[in-house]
Design a binder for these strands. Structure first.
Lengths: 366, 366
DNA sequence: AATTTCTTTGGGAGCGCTCTCAAAAGTTAT
DNA sequence: ATAACTTTTGAGAGCGCTCCCAAAGAAATT
């Protein structure tokens, strides 16, 4: 529509560039009449300040980056990330920030993306999904200048800012619940063992067992990778060792595992009980509703942005930490009686286990 | 690590700012020795050019925006969008572009986001998910300067650049297949009827019926909104009218509908056959594998970025159009024997081979 | 009426790059 | 050796804004 600059508006309004700048930036030190006049002209001309010029002069871009490293990029097969992204995007809007998304697909991508991340005048801050310990990208970002907040506890947490949920006590409460219900042979399907998430949930499992004075049977712990299929495969292995309850480190794996259990002709929770982790929307619409640890994924994303922006504005020293709480949601797969939260709607819906990966809810698109 | 600027590097290398700039931008007009020397210093100092300054001077930001309007923002409940985003992100990396994601949650967001989108010096181009016809955001973007590519045919297509799949012939082939198999009472579950996607798929349905000389029974067409639950609800209505086959306009709705059918005690495909649309990965891992129209979602995102960048570089006149092909993937829910099109080489693939194709998220064949 | 204080405005100096143009240096041809 | 190119380098003028500082004007104080 136009290529006007501040100067042009100034001329049109008969004021100086500075004054127009003040109006645009809502500075209080402008006379009411002048402000009105300038605003009107801006309105009429459809003037929009140039973002690059503004960033250069102010040393602020109002952009933050969300980086999903290569080691985590089974990304879009897991509903976790869309939910997270949504939270992050939402919070960015609230803060008038623009969100840039960096999906690192492979090593090549990483080489290509890293310099863009490090470039000054690009991002005010970075949200980095925690990945493996040997993540090169991780190291380079840590040692850079940009305010950086890691999503999920990193392996080397020394002086790095991160936000996480309390995976240990969350897992502990899940397993303790199974113990309380009297299950004797409790198995676990882990996530990708190179993630702290998985390590911490395993620690919680061990703590719960120890507190109950139970021995851990190593054959009842099988490694998964957070995917539905890995849950299915893991469960097939586990069946040979006759568990009576399973703690799956993610809902998606729980769903895969339950599929294996049902195919084998067992009943849930009568023969084998289940507790998952995440509390994805689907958990409450399964035919046998999944008992699981609720973690506030979208909220997690929002909190992360809030914290990052705080860091940007107030500096990152000392290292920032934020740990969010989780909540065990008891439904049907763990046996015992169902104590569902009143907020759980959709609990009426029945569904085949194979709806598993699909979430319900109004989708309008394509 | 440092706050060096071009000037500093120049001083260190004993050359001028211009020369360093040439090295950084890989200009050919630099002496080999000079280049080497400068490169080494850049390497050692860890210098990275300032993005804002560069954008301001060059009038190029190397950023593109992906905008999901409000009318479409049940976004992250539908696997379609993560797949699309992945494709877009992938292509951006290839083009050394940064992707900014704009999720418009509500009217407030829209007001907040619009100016950011319109601001010059921010985005080189915009990818806009097609929404409703009365979308204010749509209008404002159309009438702005930024190169704009709409994902999905918009209602007013006059002089707007868009990319889409051939929904009409895709739907037609799906329905023709059911007709060929001899089904007599073919029903349809539509998507959100205010989207062109849904309208086009309905047109395809009608064309197939017309070509076969069939009357359309309006009671066999029920409106959904692309969500799993809407498929379930729609199917409950449809059951009263005894259809023997259903064309669902999305896989997710097909899954919901099949859930309803099974609950009612019918068998698939014996009592009621199904064809879906999308070919999400889950379609091939269902207990009864879903016959569906494959649309290359991720690939669609890639093509979109390619086209947009082409527009940015070469201008947008005349209006650009790109229509991608789809492919009917015959599996188990449609009954009958696999009738493959002679030209389809994918039709040879069964089960796991097909899965492989789908899991790669790719089917890169156009 | 003169002085002080506060508010409103304008001017100028960058922010760190790109890009054109001309000068300098190096090549080849005459 | 000189002329005529070609390649390599440097200088300067922006890109469009912010932000500090000082000037001007208005209001309040003496």
């Amino acid at each position: 529509m136009n290529d006007l600059k501040l100067e042009d508006i100034a001329k049109l309004a008969g004021v100086s560039r500075s004054t127009v700048s003040r109006v645009v930036n809502a500075s209080p030190n402008v006379g009411a009449a002048t402000r009105k006049r300038v605003e009107k002209i801006i309105q009429n001309t459809g003037y929009h300040p140039n973002a690059a010029a503004r960033s250069l002069a102010s040393q602020r871009t109002n952009m933050i980056g969300l980086v999903i490293p290569r080691t985590t990029s089974a990304f879009f097969t897991d509903p976790y990330f869309p939910h997270l992204t949504q939270g992050v995007a939402f919070a960015c809007n609230n803060h008038h920030m623009t969100l840039s998304l960096f999906l690192v697909g492979n090593q090549e991508d990483e080489n290509e993306i890293t310099p863009r991340l490090l470039r000054r005048g690009m991002l005010d801050g970075i949200l980095l999904q925690s990945g493996n310990s040997d993540d090169m990208l991780f190291r380079r970002l840590i040692s850079s200048q940009v305010p950086l907040l890691v999503l999920g506890r990193p392996f080397e947490e020394k002086s790095v800012n991160y936000i996480d949920v309390d995976n240990i006590s969350a897992a502990k409460s899940a397993v303790s619940h199974l113990l309380k219900l009297g299950y004797q042979r409790i198995g676990m399907i882990t996530g990708a063992i190179r993630s702290t998430t998985s390590v911490d949930r395993q620690t919680g499992f061990e703590q719960a067992m120890a507190e109950a004075g139970r021995e851990i049977d190593p054959s009842l712990i099988v490694e998964g990778d957070f995917s539905e299929n890995s849950g299915y495969v893991a469960m097939k292995k586990l069946l040979a060792f006759t568990p009576d309850a399973i703690f799956a480190q993610s809902d998606v794996m729980a769903i895969g595992a339950m599929r294996a259990v049902q195919e084998a002709g067992f009943e849930i929770p009568k023969d084998i009980a289940f507790v998952g982790f995440d509390d994805l929307p689907i958990a409450s619409t399964l035919p046998i509703k999944l008992t699981t640890v609720h973690q506030p994924i979208t909220h997690f994303g929002i909190k992360a942005v809030d914290l990052l922006i705080d860091m940007i504005e107030k500096g990152t020293k000392p290292a920032k930490r934020m740990i969010l709480d989780t909540e065990l949601i008891i439904r049907d797969t763990c046996g015992g009686k169902s104590v569902s939260r009143p907020t759980d709607q959709g609990a009426e819906m029945e569904g085949s286990a194979l709806n598993a990966l699909i979430q319900t809810g109004g989708a309008i698109h394509h």
